[in-house]
Computed example of a mutant assay.
Amino acid sequence: PLLALLDRVGLVEAPPDVLHKVADRLDAAAQRCGPAIATYGNPAKTLAAELAGSLPLVWTEGEAAGPVGRRFAAVLAELAGRPALVAELPEALPAHGGLLAGAFAAAADPDDFFRDRVDEPEA
């Protein structure tokens, strides 16, 4: 509906055939990420499992990506109750660099970064 409205006021071009294609893609994503789909085949549940017990750092680059990153962090907080920190590049590294090293860094062993941690207790 928002794309149709923006088309009518002349801000974007969204002919009906394009709107139908967008709706079809959104339907496909909703089916792939639905609650009845098992975690191993569901990107949304996989992401939720990977974010559990962590503080996500959402870094964006570009004019359009900034609002998307902020919205993603807001949705994580509002719907999932998970905080996230957002910054735009190139300011992201100085802003969040302290979280990537030292006392706040993840407790992963740098020599065994790619090991499977599924069965290990949280650090």
Rank of each mutant, 00 (worst) to 15 (best):
R25I: 06
P16L: 05
A74Q: 15
A44D: 04
A123N: 06
F113Y: 14
E61N: 09
D116F: 06
E91C: 06
G98D: 05
G66W: 06
L19S: 03
L19Y: 00
G98T: 02
P83N: 10
V86L: 03
V58N: 01
L2K: 12
L93W: 12
C33F: 04
F114V: 06
G10H: 03
R25V: 10
A80L: 12
L26A: 13
G53R: 07
A4T: 08
A87Y: 00
R115A: 15
E91Y: 13
P90F: 05
D111G: 10
R32N: 04
R25G: 11
L19C: 10
L51D: 00
L19F: 05
P1K: 11
A48M: 11
A14E: 02
E122I: 07
D111R: 14
S54V: 02
F72R: 03
L76C: 12
G66S: 09
L19D: 02
L85T: 01
E91N: 13
P56Q: 04
A105T: 04
L79V: 14
A38G: 14
R117I: 12
A38D: 15
L6Q: 12
G97Q: 09
P56W: 01
F113M: 11
D109T: 06
V58S: 01
A30H: 05
T46F: 04
E63A: 14
V12C: 04
R71I: 06
V68P: 01
L89Q: 11
P15I: 05
P1Q: 12
P67E: 09
G53V: 06
G81W: 05
A38R: 15
G102L: 08
